[in-house]
Design a protein around this nucleic acid. Structure first.
Lengths: 115, 115
DNA sequence: TGCACACATAAGAATATACTTATACAATGA
DNA sequence: TCATTGTATAAGTATATTCTTATGTGTGCA
């Protein structure tokens, strides 16, 4: 594995702490497979919009994810220029794919696609 | 990566939560490189014995580490028969080696070696 | 201009976490 | 048998975390 910079143990711990919540871990896994907006997460996790927003803020504040505004929607995705992005990928590689969740959304016609 | 069994997302999250504390992450990294007893961790982390013991209990209760009693000492090591042991190894692979800490202990003559 | 929608933020509450101090338990050795 | 040493556990406390409800902000559209 090649890092853009060496990683301190405390940095690794803080990344693992962020990922050590099942909601955020699912978010990051999903974002590694799809770009996603907030309202989709609200549907996916059956969780209130502020709760989703607060999880995303933690991920954004630490640099793991980035946002892209598209009209009223804000699309989140993994931030590939995050210095520890390769480490994040390595950690979530062993996590089961969450694609089926997005596919469920699409089946229900709840998937936002404004490209 | 080959798992002994498939891993649920929630399982991964709970493992990452355990590792998402700098003390426990250092412990697990150290234990991947050396067997270690409680009093050595107390020296290493400059932390009270009960605090160390409680961190080790969390790791033991979840199966990540195992213990081996040798006289008055209890030696901890990674539990390689833990079903998600390969995942733990993958996660800590990117964490910087903590060997220097053990070497410091040896330099100070504080390393217990009762083999 | 004003309303509706998507999202963010603030404040508060319930719970979880990580320490502390005190004490119990297990093994050794005099 | 008793004291000492290494470790575990219990109980309490301070802080962190993750929700909830209420409200603010930005964008699109009639």
């Amino acid at each position: 594995m090649i890092f853009n910079q060496t990683m301190e143990l405390e940095t690794a711990a803080s990344i693992l702490k962020l990922l050590g919540d099942k909601t955020r871990l699912a978010m990051v896994k999903i974002l590694s497979e799809n770009e996603c907006c907030v309202c989709e997460f609200v549907d996916l996790f059956e969780m209130s919009q502020p709760a989703v927003s607060q999880h995303l803020r933690k991920l954004r504040d630490s640099g793991l994810v980035k946002e892209r505004r598209k009209g009223q929607w804000i699309y989140y995705s993994l931030n590939s220029s995050y210095p520890y992005h390769p480490y994040v990928l390595q950690v979530i590689q062993g996590v089961p794919s969450q694609r089926y969740r997005i596919e469920e959304l699409e089946t229900q016609g709840k998937r936002i696609s404004c490209d």
